[in-house]
């Protein structure tokens, strides 16, 4: 039981960050919450002893996808529903 505590914490953090991604009206904060989701998923892969998948998830999910979203937010509006 004691070794399952970090796993339970990571899963709870996954749910919280997924809800936060939908909750934020600030799109930059929502993007960072999505990056946190990817990072926690890579942590979960590492706990489940798949370090290969964890490295690629941390690099692509938490790094590149967040960067692409930040560049897209630079080109458009930052807040949801603004300017419509």
């Amino acid at each position: 039981m004691i070794e399952q505590i970090p796993q339970i914490l990571v899963l709870l953090g996954l749910i919280v960050s997924a809800v936060l991604t939908f909750h934020f009206k600030d799109l930059l904060a929502a993007t960072l919450a999505a990056g946190l989701f990817s990072f926690l998923i890579s942590l979960e892969f590492y706990i489940l002893q798949a370090p290969d998948v964890a490295i690629s998830q941390a690099a692509i999910g938490a790094g590149l996808t967040t960067a692409i979203f930040i560049i897209a937010i630079r080109a458009t509006k930052r807040f949801e529903g603004e300017g419509s």
Binding site: P51, I55, S56, A59, G63, L64, A67, I71
Partner: peptide, 21 residues
């Protein structure tokens, strides 16, 4: 060690993304 071509290339691309942002 764990890793390989795809993972290492993705890590380097993350550094490039940092500079680009």
């Amino acid at each position: 060690t764990p890793g390989g071509g795809f993972q290492g290339g993705a890590v380097i691309a993350t550094g490039g993304a940092l500079v680009i942002v």
